[in-house]
Nucleic acid binder design. Sequence first.
DNA 1: CCCAACATTGAGACTCATTTTCAATAATGG
DNA 2: CCATTATTGAAAATGAGTCTCAATGTTGGG
Lengths: 144, 144
Amino acid sequence: MLKEKIKAGFRSSLVEKGLKSTRQREEILDEFLNDGSHQSAEELYLRLRRKNPRIGYATVYRTLKLFEECGIAEPRQFGDGQTRYESSFDEHHDHLICTTCGKIIEFENPEIEALQLKVAGEHGFVIDRHRLNLYGRCRDCRKT
Amino acid sequence: MLKEKIKAGFRSSLVEKGLKSTRQREEILDEFLNDGSHQSAEELYLRLRRKNPRIGYATVYRTLKLFEECGIAEPRQFGDGQTRYESSFDEHHDHLICTTCGKIIEFENPEIEALQLKVAGEHGFVIDRHRLNLYGRCRDCRKT
DNA sequence: CCCAACATTGAGACTCATTTTCAATAATGG
DNA sequence: CCATTATTGAAAATGAGTCTCAATGTTGGG
């Protein structure tokens, strides 16, 4: 199953980097992979603490950065002041954000991505990644 | 000239809101309009201090927020941890950001925007604004 | 022109997310 | 099992941005 492959890949990355595999790193990766997307370090920390109250705040922050370096997680800013991480193994997507209720909907649009590549090329850029956020009001919030 | 119109509009907004026109607000607006885009509060503050060393840090922050409320400036996040403001009177545009040298290039693409509206509509959203950042390497940085 | 009413300012204290420090602890290779 | 070296947790530090408050400036009326 995918999760096991990700965990195995993480352990290999650690070895490559000369880092150690620890209980905390395993626990954090587990919890990160279990939950849905868009998790902040704090949310993850609070959930982890329910299982293991001895886990440290800083460890969660450090480990999320490590996941980023290992290509497991990617940081995103949605404008609420917290960095949220999503799994790099989710298929690529962009976000619709409701400015009333905070709901986040994911979408993908290959046509938009093709146009991005075209525009970048016209300016001599090679793109690594992009961030597209659309802010507005969702169906429910428009009713009220 | 455009700047004078913006300043006049700002003074009207102040009156409407029951706020006062002060020397600091004028100075900050002047400096904001003089400089190119993507200014952080701190950069603006440092430049203002050269002319008027008595200006306060908090005043610059407050005034930028006020500009935002008055429709003069818009905040943006480029991932360096600082909020940067651009003039609302620049035509709408998105950004290409070089992750090596930090250069920011602006572009516009109506096709992409049309597709954004379409996608949003399919999810029942009405969009107020969007943020599209493309991160990569510029022509110069790819050479090295 | 002057005053009263009230908005604004600047300095510094404060917040909040995140990072760093450091002594204690745990993982790894031999 | 040991020595080496990375990691951890707690607390202190950081940095962008916000708030507080006494002093100051702006305004509309008189």
